[in-house]
């Protein structure tokens, strides 16, 4: 970042003062929020992660156990499976939803008359609470009274798929629901990005005789690259935390086919009330994610350089 060139302005001192003060007070509200609401819980979490906590005679007693949490991790039969499923889920939904969200954003940005219809419809899945989405889709998928099976049987299909009851199809079923639910998230961010592109740029390209595809590839995509990458990053973090929707749809089954890490942490924290181990797992996942994000930011810089 370069300094603003202010040297030739008339009232340098006031301006510097004004600039300086704005720089600070613009950040103050955020810092207040973060300090008041996040610092203490995270410190407590760090303490918990090296302890074992238990209620004894009504008091929460904490015992330091240090890195013995690693033993708990080694004994945990679910955490490996859950991480694997989570990774598959995250990679699949982020890629599919990014492609779909971008395509939709480009397409809808070209429409005029029906634009308002498209924009409103696309927001709808986001407004339904995840529990309702989970139960609705479990009704749609249900083998005995569900919509899809009923239709397929009417059409004369002999062995309709079992969807969430088939260990090989369960994760795919969950991914389908997620794509329906969350593509709009990426769509909204990308549409905002496209709408921020100065129309003059697109006009210039059109005058130069670029066809639609070339315009997307050489004008829109490079400008949009940072937005797309940020949207993917936010979606990745969100997908990593997927919980309610799967909890209602499959509860992690059949077998362990749809166990994901956030559901496992919830179980350890709430049902098993192993606060220490849950804190440890939370931090472990966050550390894992941070490494991923750092790598991602580095990689995205490389990509941006290529495209730019």
């Amino acid at each position: 970042m370069t300094q603003l060139s202010l040297s030739d302005s008339r009232d340098l001192r006031t301006m510097l003062f004004g600039q300086g003060s704005f720089k600070y007070w613009a950040l103050v509200p955020l810092l207040v929020v973060l300090t008041v609401f996040t610092v203490l819980p995270i410190i407590q979490l760090l303490q918990m992660s090296v302890s074992e906590l238990e209620f004894v005679e009504g008091e929460l007693v904490s015992e330091f156990i240090g890195l013995r949490q690693l033993d708990n991790l080694a004994k945990d039969p679910i955490v490996g499976i859950a991480l694997k499923n989570t990774l598959v889920f995250v990679v699949a939904v982020v890629i599919i939803e990014t492609v779909a969200g971008f395509t939709l954003a480009v397409a809808i940005s070209r429409t005029k008359t029906l634009s308002i219809l498209y924009r409103s419809v696309v927001i709808i899945p986001l407004l339904i609470p995840p529990v309702a989405i989970g139960t609705t889709w479990s009704l749609i998928y249900d083998f005995n009274y569900g919509l899809i099976t009923t239709i397929l049987i009417e059409l004369g299909v002999q062995n309709p798929p079992l969807w969430t009851a088939d260990p090989d199809l369960a994760l795919i079923s969950v991914i389908i629901v997620d794509v329906w639910h969350w593509t709009s998230f990426l769509f909204l961010i990308m549409l905002a990005g496209i709408e921020s592109i100065p129309p003059s740029l697109l006009e210039a390209a059109r005058v130069d005789g670029a066809n639609e595809f070339r315009m997307i590839r050489h004008v829109i995509l490079p400008i949009m690259a940072p937005t797309i990458l940020v949207a993917m990053l936010l979606r990745t973090i969100l997908a990593f935390k997927v919980f309610d929707q799967i909890f209602v749809l499959t509860s992690g089954g059949p077998g362990t086919a749809t166990q994901v890490i956030s559901m496992h942490i919830y179980k350890v924290f709430s049902e098993q009330f192993r606060l220490g181990y849950a804190a440890f797992l939370s931090l472990l996942v966050a550390a894992f994610m941070t490494i991923f994000v750092v790598f991602y930011l580095w990689a995205s810089r490389v990509v941006r350089r290529r495209l730019g």
Binding site: F143, N144, L162, T164, A165, D166, P167, G253, P254, G255
Partner: peptide, 16 residues
């Protein structure tokens, strides 16, 4: 049981 036996919750048993 129905083919989706691996996915039956209490609600499904009640429904059946």
């Amino acid at each position: 049981a129905p083919q989706n036996y691996a996915d039956l919750g209490q609600g499904d048993l009640l429904a059946l």
